[in-house]
Design a protein around this nucleic acid. Sequence first.
DNA 1: GTTGGCACTCGACACGTTAGAGTGCTAACA
DNA 2: TGTTAGCACTCTAACGTGTCGAGTGCCAAC
Lengths: 346, 346
Amino acid sequence: MKMDTRKQQVLMALITDFIATAEPVGSRTIARKYEMGVSPATIRNEMADLEEMGFIEQPHTSAGRVPSHMGYRYYVDFLMKKHSLSNREEEMIRRGYEDKVRDVGQVVQRTGNLLSQITSYAAVVVRPRAAGSFKHVQMVLMNPGSAMVVVVMNTGAVHHRIIEVAGGITQSDLDTISQVFNAKLQGHNMDSIKLTLIKEIYFELSKHRNLLDLAMYLIKDSFDLDGEEKIYLGGVFNILNQPEFNNVDKVKTLLSLLEQEEMFYSLLERNTDPDGVTVRIGEEINRDEMKECSMVTAAYRIGDTQLGTIGVLGPTRMDYARVVSIVECMTRNLSQTLEKMSRGWK
Amino acid sequence: MKMDTRKQQVLMALITDFIATAEPVGSRTIARKYEMGVSPATIRNEMADLEEMGFIEQPHTSAGRVPSHMGYRYYVDFLMKKHSLSNREEEMIRRGYEDKVRDVGQVVQRTGNLLSQITSYAAVVVRPRAAGSFKHVQMVLMNPGSAMVVVVMNTGAVHHRIIEVAGGITQSDLDTISQVFNAKLQGHNMDSIKLTLIKEIYFELSKHRNLLDLAMYLIKDSFDLDGEEKIYLGGVFNILNQPEFNNVDKVKTLLSLLEQEEMFYSLLERNTDPDGVTVRIGEEINRDEMKECSMVTAAYRIGDTQLGTIGVLGPTRMDYARVVSIVECMTRNLSQTLEKMSRGWK
DNA sequence: GTTGGCACTCGACACGTTAGAGTGCTAACA
DNA sequence: TGTTAGCACTCTAACGTGTCGAGTGCCAAC
């Protein structure tokens, strides 16, 4: 069977209506409300075809039809019309970035709040991992045997951790290492540090044999900031307003899943599309507990460096057209703001 | 009417049973299950008295009785027996602190996870605010006109923020200020910095007139870290397992409340009891949305400095005896661990 | 290819009935 | 005077029944 224009129209009408009402849609509703110019009986025939093709399904015999995941996918890929943001929405976004900000983390978090408020779904934001380039390192001896390492990145991110050091190490030893590191590493990103610069540092510190071990350890361990991603989740309660979550069990499984931060890394990592918005529908998320949810995600960046991902999590019945536009717009705004913040920090 | 021993026994039995079953408790259940040695009819008389006194109430005419907030309060204050932790629980707590840790924030967060796992309720943890004493400051010029200020505290906490500086300020200017600050401020806490040391710094920097403004601004603004508390919430979905939350509306109001972090500051601030555990029941939280919840909280500290608060949030029908013991035990362990971490960092 | 008509299915809802749990009261008992 | 058994009463939860309406599939007619 082939998809023709009228089938597309019917599918479009059905999905639009279902997104708005959350109720199974019957043939008469489509015929009447969407002015198809044909009778309900004709629509019924088309719907039977669409069902056979797998785009819609019937919850039970005497109910209307509901889009299947495949139906949503077809809608997102081919039917969906671009939604332009209302003035109110534009205004909200613009004002969200007006306030003065202290650091990158704050901007990103505020983005999450805004995103969940505007869309009325949950927002997921992955904060910058160890992206950007090295700006400064400072080591502070906390007590004999342990020191605080603080690394400042050009993105404005600050990482810190406590490490053990040999008992004999003094603050001035730490200063020596810091100086060498700051001189050699500034402007390099973490990957190139590991590969090319170790030899130079080795040479530089050769007159301080006792510090070499510590310096190498630092590069190997403390600068390995991969574990530092931070997930921010906002507006989860929004999602509970959706009628598909009026069942406590569903809420429970969803929430217990959302508390496992690690899950999101694998989920969002697969967001390979380097620019543009990715839509993942129901089963495509590959998580049984989320087969009734969809995610709309996009990456944000400073210049060419991808910093992290923002996204919206809602029921499969979400208003894709609107959400995609909003995510697009917010990613643009966020990237711009970050760029503005970082201009010159290189 | 006066509270006598048998009334206490009845109240005790009723609360114990209600905590276990979440069902209104009838006279027969108490007489039979708790071997009171009297008939249900007698229990009925006692229950009528207890109701008149306000300790228990009846959801509807032909149901058993349920503890009132006043009843819980009496139970917590006078009746509750100390619950000793099972080996399994002790073991879990002990092992939670075994792993090596990188910084204070991590320990505190892990405590929250553990707390919610063991109790099966939600855990609330307020991370250290600007407690402890000043250890080190470092300023990094990010670009002409803006600088990163990083402050390290003796508690192992690291605060950072970006500030605007005059265009002419160079990295070596920043280093000058840092040096003065580090020399003068080390070991002082934030409060005494504001009061006593400004003059000394003023004097010290008088030969660098151009830096004075910046230095004063730093003290006034960047060291004012009050906004830096961080709430950690864990195991919220646990609370949904409680039968009192099998209603989606209740879940929604609770969740939307929990997303407002600010609320917790005022809630936990009033935890005036400097050591020991505070129990706040239902309406005592002073939040209409939480009148069916109770909180068990306690402060944790390094030495004499109170750093923050940990707590458990559950339904009023929570197992107070058990939760109080667990919170007590975890606070002790947490304080010890932090103390161990910080030994010598002064 | 389109349409109207008709029989059929199924869930939602309202209603009445029943079973069971628990109470309050009263009268008898120690 | 405190305790107990018995009894009538109340209320909820659960179940079964009947009705209504929405929606379908199919068929014959246009």
